[in-house]
């Protein structure tokens, strides 16, 4: 039973995103990278001319602990198809323990997102250090691949 009153009862494709046809659709992935490790690692990948998919848009944060789960939810609301959050390896956080707190937050966030039915693979986490240019490229490769397989994000998109 559908009702006009409850317009948002059934999710559907967002009308405002013209993402092209199925074949040439490219996912939009947002990457939150911690300044001291992951962002530097991404920079190293660039300087070393290592190729990786161009689908990510980077936001630099001081520490992975800065990431509020609300950021991830808002990315999904705004139509991003995937979210990557990357920080320093445990024990190497520039702020000593930021990534330890982040680890706990991310664990609960990931469990929750999967539980409500957001496809696993849309929101992913990694530890990438400043010297791991190659690893960064591999991480992006994996995330882009996973998200491409999942298709455009529909479930959490805000309809305006």
């Amino acid at each position: 039973m559908s009702t006009k009153k409850q317009e948002y009862k059934k999710t559907g494709a967002q009308e405002h995103k013209s993402t092209g046809t199925q074949e040439n659709w490219q996912p939009k992935i947002i990457a939150f990278l911690c300044n001291w490790c992951s962002y530097a690692g991404a920079d190293l990948a660039g300087v070393s001319r290592i190729q990786y998919p161009p689908n990510i848009r980077v936001i630099r944060v001081p520490c992975s602990g800065r990431i509020n789960p609300i950021f991830v939810l808002k990315c999904l609301q705004n139509g991003f198809d995937g979210v990557l959050v990357s920080g320093c390896h445990p024990g190497n956080c520039h702020y000593i323990s930021g990534n330890y707190y982040a680890r706990r937050k991310f664990a609960i966030l990931k469990t929750l997102l999967e539980f409500i039915g957001i496809e696993p693979g849309r929101v992913q986490f990694s530890w990438v250090s400043a010297g791991e240019g190659e690893k960064f490229a591999q991480v992006v490769e994996k995330v882009a691949d996973d998200v491409k397989k999942l298709g455009p994000a529909k479930r959490f998109v805000k309809r305006i």
């Binding site: 789960p69 609300i70 808002k74 999904l76 609301q77 609960i108 929750l112 409500i116 805000k158």
Partner: peptide
């Protein structure tokens, strides 16, 4: 403003998820 205040589905769902995460 982090969330819309209307009854739009994703805003409402985000409120509930955020509340559950904050009380985790």
């Amino acid at each position: 403003q982090w969330f819309g205040k209307s009854t739009e589905f994703s805003d409402t769902f985000t409120f509930h998820i955020t509340r559950m995460l904050d009380t985790a």
